[in-house]
Amino acid sequence: MSSFVQIRRDLHQIPELGFQEFKTQSYVLTYLQTLPEDRLEIKQWETGIFVKVKGINPKKLIGYRTDIDGLPIVEETGLEFHSKHETEMHACGHDFHMSIALGTLTHFVYHPINDDLLFIFQPAEEGPGGAEPMLKTDIMKEWMPDMIMALHIAPEYPVGTIAIREGLLFANTSELFIDLKGKGGHAAFPHQTNDMIIAACSLVTQLQTVISRNVDPLDSAVITIGKITSGTVQNIIAERARLEGTIRTLSVESMEKVKKRIEEIVKGIEVGFQCEANIDFGVMYYQVYNEAKLTREFMDFVAKRTDVKVIECKEAMTGEDFGYMLKEIPGFMFWLGVESEYGLHHSKLNPNEKAIDTAINMICQYIEYKGNE
């Protein structure tokens, strides 16, 4: 077992939610202290870390980003190294992401190339979002990469597969919270109340018309209401209801259109059900859009390897706040095959650890190529 597989297992046991990654940050910093100090510059921000690996004759700065947070999921993998935090799990593969980043970083500490490298250990990817505030830091302004790259594990692809495409890879995403307030009362006297369960049910149905009647059929968008909270007991008409969901679109313009239409429909609910309504769009993640030239160059590079297969994939409705970095910095993200029976955000996700060394070797060779141009 390689040392970076062990690092993955160590990190898997200490998943933490966004901006609470104190153990994770400490673990990474402790590991970095084992590396030669003269080759590194380390700066902390919140629970994140910036690490600059010095080049021999730098002409540009190449960035590599990994996310570090976990999810509020109870793990059910049965692994010996399962999460020590009962209600939290690395169910999106960020333990894999970190171990691959540390493996790549370590290689270039001992095998320097011409260009400088910047490794970004970013908190809060799952929420409330760490990429955008990191971009605004003085550290990032000083160390702004000329290009940047990242990966995300993909349970549906076998180990040794890289899936990527030019242009849009991940969708624009937005949270959606709607609170309704009417008038509660006794179940025997509905005419004296404004029932928010009825209003909520009507609203859910109407929201689906946004997709079927307001979005171009050749475009794609999703509105999913994943949670409704309302009521107290069976014989009281509910005074309040809360809907929680998500919006996904393949374009920024569609996101704006969908939000505007949601606002209009909710105003109609207020009038029709004589209630008050409040909308909160929460956290929005900008689309992951791969820069064409760098992406094609990466695909051509990987295609020449015998141990890795590159395929051109379709865009996905998943969200990733790495999109904010790609909005400002040329670069790309790709899927890394890890062949797990269970998918992302599942309590039984168990990626194949062989993908870790495969990814480290491939990324190191690509960065050597780019960093010695």
Rank of each mutant, 00 (worst) to 15 (best):
V5P: 06
E16D: 03
F19V: 05
F22Y: 13
Q25K: 15
Q25R: 13
Q33G: 02
R39W: 00
L40R: 02
I42F: 00
I42A: 04
Q44A: 11
I49C: 03
K52Q: 11
K52M: 04
G55A: 07
I56C: 03
I62C: 05
I62S: 06
Y64Q: 12
L71G: 04
V74I: 15
E75V: 11
E75I: 09
E76F: 00
L79C: 10
H85S: 08
T87D: 13
D95P: 10
L105R: 11
H107A: 04
I113P: 05
L118I: 14
F119A: 10
P123K: 07
P128H: 05
A131E: 10
E132C: 02
M134W: 10
L135C: 09
D138F: 01
I139Y: 12
K141V: 02
K141R: 14
P145W: 08
D146C: 10
P155M: 08
Y157F: 15
V159R: 11
T161R: 07
I162G: 02
I162H: 00
I164K: 00
L169I: 09
F170A: 11
A171P: 03
A171K: 11
L180C: 05
K183F: 01
A187Y: 07
Q192L: 14
D195E: 07
D195Y: 14
M196S: 09
I197C: 01
I198C: 08
I198R: 10
S202F: 11
V204S: 00
T209A: 05
V210L: 10
P217Q: 06
P217G: 05
L218G: 00
V222F: 06
G226S: 11
S230D: 05
S230T: 14
G231W: 10
T232I: 12
V233L: 06
E239D: 07
R240Y: 05
R242N: 06
L243Y: 08
T246P: 03
T249A: 09
S254P: 00
S254H: 04
S254E: 10
M255I: 00
E256F: 04
V258C: 05
K259E: 13
I262A: 09
G268C: 04
E270H: 07
G272K: 00
Q274N: 15
N278R: 14
I279C: 04
I279T: 02
F281C: 06
V283E: 14
M284T: 13
V288N: 01
T295Q: 03
F298H: 04
D300W: 03
F301K: 07
F301S: 08
V302M: 10
D307F: 02
V308F: 08
V310Y: 05
I311Y: 03
K314C: 03
K314M: 13
M317W: 09
E320C: 10
D321Y: 11
D321S: 05
D321C: 11
F322N: 08
M325Q: 13
E328L: 06
I329L: 01
P330Y: 10
M333A: 01
W335H: 12
G337W: 08
E339F: 00
L344E: 02
H345M: 11
P351H: 09
N352C: 11
E353V: 12
E353K: 14
A355F: 04
A359S: 14
I363H: 09
C364R: 11
Y369F: 15
K370M: 14
G371N: 03
